[in-house]
Design a protein around this nucleic acid. Sequence first.
DNA 1: TAGGCCATCTGGTCCT
DNA 2: AGGACCAGATGGCCTA
Length: 241
Amino acid sequence: MSVAQGAELFPGSGDLPEQAMAELKSLGSDPYLALAQSYGQSAFAYGPGRGAAESPRGYAGGGGAFHPAPLGKSAESSGEQSGDEEDAFEPAKGSPAYERDGKLPAGALGKKPKEQRSLRLSINARERRRMHDLNDALDGLRSVIPYAHSPSVRKLSKIATLLLAKNYILMQAQALEEMRRLVAYLNQGQALSTPLPATLNPFGQSAVYPFSGTALPSCPEKCTAFPGTTSSLCKHCNDKP
DNA sequence: TAGGCCATCTGGTCCT
DNA sequence: AGGACCAGATGGCCTA
């Protein structure tokens, strides 16, 4: 695979995933590509290419009878006040506690019902926030994965996003490696005593190469190396807001 | 109508 | 003790 091929493989918005997949399949039998192909197929099978426009969904309706939040508006956008505020506090129908006796588990028996409810609502809100953070991160990932972003193409599912991202990283790594070999090859024709200036040598020691086998940087460095990651999402970061 | 995907609740476990 | 994380369960929405 040439670098040019790699650049064309995921040219960004507007390209059909099937076309990219076909290009992937046409490539060699490199282990990277074998992985990329298998995962790429899965990703595309799960994700885009179903031909339907992304339609607004009433996500907040989740939880069914217990949490009748307004359709088309997430619990978060409703200010952490999901429908459960108005609901009777009882275990979910599928939960072990409910299966057992339809009441709260023993761990919560030591508190007054009002405190139980307040605690449960607090826990639920935290969990919602956590899942929303996770979804925000997934959205960020989708935004940088080259696939068809047009409104006529359905948004990538979670699993498709992860698989495609992995696929994309592997492909970029291989393209980088090939570029590296190309530069080395070109340098062979030059005098060894005149190395490329740092600005022209993207693979020098100062270059960031994620697969060089070096240990991951410590947390503060990591946060600065990946500015898209907010410090609040980094459990090791000392610079929490 | 079945299957896929999703949001949410919930209890358990681990960590700080 | 409180928070983060995880997995199971449930029901809603959408598409084929």
